[in-house]
Design a protein around this nucleic acid. Structure first.
Lengths: 341, 341
DNA sequence: GTTAGCACTCATTAAAGTAGAGTGCTAATA
DNA sequence: TATTAGCACTCTACTTTAATGAGTGCTAAC
């Protein structure tokens, strides 16, 4: 049996209706809902077919139908019309362009959660592929040095280093020069052992300090592998009965608390062809805690290889049109934001 | 009517039992539970008295009694024996003394949540009373300066500053000198307008940049008013039926997501006499979202006026002995940690 | 002052009955 | 051949009723 136009229309009507109400939809409803002018009996026959094909299921005999994962998938792939949607407040916010990326991300998830009424998350752009732009070593007090590392894209990392020997101003200057001339422009993968040895040699009697510093720099650079994830609107899950029961809620809250888990989910999402947007429906999610819900992710790109991901988590019956539309719009904005200049 | 020893014993027995089971306790249970050798009828009479005095309540006629807020209060104030409790893992962790305070705090809440099975939170030590220790201004690229500010206690803040005019090395050196000689050792409150004016004057043609920098510095220093709060074990609330229903859970999750709210709660807690530990039972909580639960806070002190707060949130019938004991122990450890040296 | 005994209350649970939504199937219709 | 009206059937959700039992308050006896 294959999908004809009428079946498609009916399936669409079922899904649309179910997205709205959250109740199984019956044949009579569809008979009136659509402009097909078919009796409920005919619809019933078609629905039996759709069920056989696996697009819809019955929670129990004598209930209406609800979309299966396959049904949603069909809807998302071929039926959905996601128009870019303006998000209020977002525009102003992005125009201001907070100088702290962190604050910007926090604002984005927050606005997104408020706008969509789902739980949202966003990862800071990954930087471990990036290049060292600038290192500054300063003496804070007699036995503490401060290493500030700036990475391409102006991400800043700093680190206190304890030193046993006191270091005079002249040496500081020399060390700074050394570090900057040798390391700038390198990606972390390029900092290998032989280079470290060379640096240490050049540092002479201060090779110990240089060693420490480089260790710290490398660690600093690799450290954002446990990348930051910001979340918002977790409480929105209580708006959807299918997620609000004790067990599901616990699972989700746990997942949202353990940012590492979130990071995995969000990071493993394929960039998703041309759009950069991916939809994972129910069982399609790799993470077991997420198989009761749907996750939509969007990869944004701030240029210089700095990519991050936005994720929206809601019930299976989430408003895919709206969510995808919103994400498209935000993705575009973020992509444009830094690239323009 | 006043509290005699027998009433006290009975009240204690009721509370202990209720803390364990979460079920209203009846007179017969107490009659067997205690070593008073009294019949249930006698207990009933005493319980009627205790109810009249407001220490216990009946959910409904023909149910046993449960402690009222007043009852818990009495228990916490005079009946509880909180012995310091070792927390596994904690010791090792603190000995290592992560160089990033942030990581340390994250570990603490995590371990605490795992140990107590309640939801936990911790604030980073407040620094806004602290003094500027060190400022470093560096040129990152032609139109970006990086300001790194180190505060007493080695808290680091940094900030990118956009400048229109390019600044040469010599000027950078001068500006750095100027900033450090003039501002070091000052608390934020001491940086006033006349001082800023003076600095600008001294900076001559670069007064614009100096102005920007000072603005940023001041903002940077004040910025940790929206202080960091780390949380863990939020999902533990689902372990306690009285908090796990939809409405209560939503409230709590929301509170835990909005760190500002948490910050208020945790910050407004009185240091709590000699122990530094405070217990807020049910309605005693100022925040409306928290009135279904109990909150125990402890103020820790890393020296140099750097104080932070730990909070544990659980049901009214939380194991106060354990929680207070644990907090005492951790508080001591944290207090000692940095002070020793 | 303490306790045994008893009537009473009320939440909880189970069982039974009712209503209604929706289906599948059949036979009639266009 | 496709569509539809009609009907018996199914199953959930809700309401009602009854049974159970834990626990109380009170009284009278010890």
């Amino acid at each position: 049996m294959e999908m004809d136009e009428r079946k498609t229309k009916i399936l669409q009507a079922i899904i649309r209706n179910y997205l709205e109400t959250g109740e199984p939809v019956g044949s009579r409803t569809i008979s009136k809902y659509t402009d097909l002018n078919l009796s409920s009996a005919t619809i019933r026959n078609e629905m039996a077919d759709l069920e056989e094909m696996g697009y819809i299921v019955q929670p129990h005999t004598s209930a209406g139908r609800i979309p299966s994962d396959k049904g949603y998938r069909f809807y998302v792939d071929t039926l959905m019309e996601a128009k870019e949607r303006e998000v209020a407040d977002m525009k102003d916010m992005l125009l201001e362009r907070q100088d702290r990326l962190e604050d910007m991300l926090k604002s984005v998830v927050k606005i997104l959660a408020k706008d969509t009424q789902y739980a949202t998350m966003i990862t800071a752009p990954m930087t471990h592929l990036n290049k060292l732009k600038f290192i500054q070593l300063s003496r804070v007090d007699s036995n503490h040095l401060l290493a500030v590392v700036v990475i391409e894209g102006n991400m800043i990392r700093n680190r206190m280093i304890e030193v046993s020997e006191e270091i005079d101003d002249e040496t500081m200057l020399k060390l700074n020069m050394l570090l900057n001339t040798q390391l700038n422009g390198l990606a972390i993968e390029e900092i290998n052992l032989s280079m470290v040895a060379k640096l240490k040699q050049q540092a002479g009697i201060h090779s110990g300090v240089i060693g420490d510093v480089i260790d710290e720099v490398v660690e600093t650079l690799s450290e954002d592998k446990d990348l930051e994830v910001y979340t918002s609107g977790t409480n929105n899950i209580f708006k959807y009965p299918e997620l609000a029961d004790n067990e599901s809620a616990r699972k989700l809250i746990t997942a949202f608390e353990e940012k590492e888990v979130l990071g995995d989910i969000i990071q493993n999402s394929e960039p998703g062809e041309e759009t950069g947007i991916q939809v994972y429906i129910g069982g399609e999610n790799a993470n077991t805690n997420m198989q009761d819900c749907s996750v939509v992710t969007a990869t944004y790109d701030l240029g210089d290889g700095m990519k991050g991901t936005i994720g929206i988590v809601g019930p299976r019956r989430m408003d895919y049109d709206k969510v995808v539309g919103t994400l498209k719009s935000i993705k575009t904005k973020l992509d444009d934001l830094y690239r323009k200049e």
